[in-house]
Every structure is written in structure tokens, then in C-alpha cells.
Simulated scan of single mutants.
Amino acid sequence: MSHNLLILFLFCLLVDSSKCVEVACSNDTNVNAVCECTERRRTVNCTNRGLNEWPVGIPANTLFLYLSDNNLKKIDTNALLQLQELFSIYAMNNMLTEVSTCFNDLPHLRTVYISENHIHGIEPFTFVNVPLEFLRIQYDNGIQVLCENAFALATDYAVGVFVQFNPNLEKISTGTFKNITTGSIFLAGNSLQSIPAKAFQGKYFLEISLKANKIRFIDKDAFVDVDHIRILDLSWNNLTSLEDGRIPPVKNIQLHKNNIQHISKNIFSNMASLEKLMLMGNSITSIQERAFSGTNLQFLFL
């Protein structure tokens, strides 16, 4: 047992143990470690341990850290930065209120799951130095706005960002999503009302899902800094019209269950990459001649 842990253990014997910092892992049988620590798999499992504070004694070589279903109000930045080999962190269903740059400078971090908390916002450049592959911030009642550079990334990996089912999330900003080489962005089930100019900036998006929001307006330059999108899902929103320039080069567009009434010839024509278009469940009364000319449409659902 380390000298620091020994002092902590002796202190807890002398005072109210409820005021002591929890020890995550220990090889000493005299110390009641609160987490399940697997040395071979380099895993620390602190799920549903009633934690109110970040536990001490997490091994520096930990790869997988599970902290879900506790009462944590913040992530201990200094303690987290000691885990330089960390690959995944799971901290769902806690009481976290903010996400700052605590994840920066972790060179191997691929997975961050922090859904079901009370996060009020994501600070700019929170994940800029993180080689992320998966990020989930879902079912959170606190987030109202995603600011510029909230998801400015610098990873060569195909990244999946899930910021879904946050009922108070009403706004994303210009430059919220930046520097994405290859990735998927899922913003379904929020309360977004508009998509501003240059909200998405990157090379290749496997999917951008904005379904089941309250979107009425899409700026004509919303996707101007996107090279290509495979699937763009704008279904189940409140769009009443589409204007020239608001749809980027895309292979599959889902616009069903809106209130679109008119399709002009300038919306989809000459979009050579377009193969599938879903428009059913709208109130379309007119489609201009040659509205789909120049496309590669193979499936059209009206």
C-alpha cells in the first residue's frame, strides 16, 4: 500500500468515514477499495458505488474507467490527467454540470460517454487534442446551446458524435462542429429551431442526423464548408420550404414528415451524387419540371 493511501486509511479510522475520500483500488486487504479493479484488463469499475467525489488510487495505467450511476458533480481534471493511457471513460447518470477541457491532453482517449447528467454546456475546444472515436452526450436536461468550437476536433479517426434527446437544446452555432475528417453527427430528438451558416465544417460525413427537432430554417451556407455527406436526415421537423443552396452534395436525403409544399427545379437538380430522396409525409402540392434532372436518383419516395 502506498504511503498516501496508508495515511488516508488511518485518517478514516479516526474520523467520520462519510467525510473520507473513497479509495478506488488497493492491494492491501486492510483498505476497503470501493471499485472493482482488474489488473490484467487494466479496468477500473466504479459503477453504482454511491460515489459523491472522484475516488483516489486509480492506477495510472488504467485503460477503461467506469464511473456511471453515481453522484459525481464534477470530473477531477488533475486526477484524470494522471491517466495518460486511458482509452475509454464512462460517466453516465451522474450529476455533472459542466464539461471543460478536462479531457484534453489524453493522447489515447477514444471513447467518452457522459449521457444522463445535468451538463449546462460544452466549453470551446474541449476535445481539440483528443483522438476521439465515440462521444455521447444524450438524455441531458441542462444543455441549451452548443457554442462555436464546442466540437472542434483534430482526429484522423472516423468519429461519431451523439448529442441527442436533450429537450432543452435549442441552438447550435456557427462553427460548432469543426475539423472533422470523417465522421457522423447525431443531433436527433433535440429542440433545434434553425441551422446557422457554417455549423458543420469538415471533409466527409457518413451521416448528419437532425431528425425530430423543430427546425424551420436552414441557412443557405449551413453546409458550405462540407465536402460530402452520405446521409442527411432532416425528417420529422417543421420545414415548409427549401431554397437553392441549402442542400449540400449528398447521396441520401431524408425530408419526410415535414410541411414542405413546393419543390422548385433549383433544389436538387444537378446534384449528381443524389441517389435516394425521401419526401413522403409532407404537404407537397407542386413539383417544378426538371426538378430532379442531373441527379442520379434511384429511389424517390413521395
Score class of each variant (00 low, 15 high):
S2Q: 07
I7A: 08
I7K: 11
L8I: 07
L14S: 01
D16W: 05
S17H: 09
S17A: 06
V21D: 11
E22M: 04
S26C: 04
D28S: 12
V31H: 00
C37N: 08
R40L: 13
R42W: 06
R49Q: 13
R49E: 09
G50M: 04
G50N: 04
G50C: 02
W54A: 05
W54G: 04
T62I: 11
T62A: 12
L65H: 03
S68D: 08
N70P: 08
A79C: 02
A79T: 04
L81Y: 10
E85Q: 02
S88T: 06
Y90V: 04
A91L: 07
A91I: 12
M95T: 09
S100L: 14
S100C: 10
S100F: 13
C102H: 11
L106I: 10
V112S: 12
S115D: 08
P124T: 02
F125P: 00
F125T: 09
F127H: 13
V130W: 12
L132S: 13
Y139I: 07
G142M: 04
L146S: 12
C147K: 13
E148I: 07
N149V: 01
N149E: 08
Y157G: 02
A158E: 15
F162Y: 15
N168P: 01
N168E: 05
G175W: 10
T176S: 12
T176K: 06
K178R: 14
N179T: 03
T181E: 15
N190K: 01
S191F: 08
L192F: 08
L192C: 11
A197V: 00
K198V: 02
Y204L: 07
L206N: 14
I208D: 05
K214H: 10
I215G: 03
D219K: 02
D227T: 15
I229R: 07
D233G: 06
W236E: 01
W236P: 04
L239T: 00
L239C: 02
E243T: 05
N258P: 11
N266W: 00
M271V: 06
M271T: 11
L277N: 05
M278N: 02
I284R: 11
A291Q: 04
S293T: 04
S293K: 00
F299R: 12
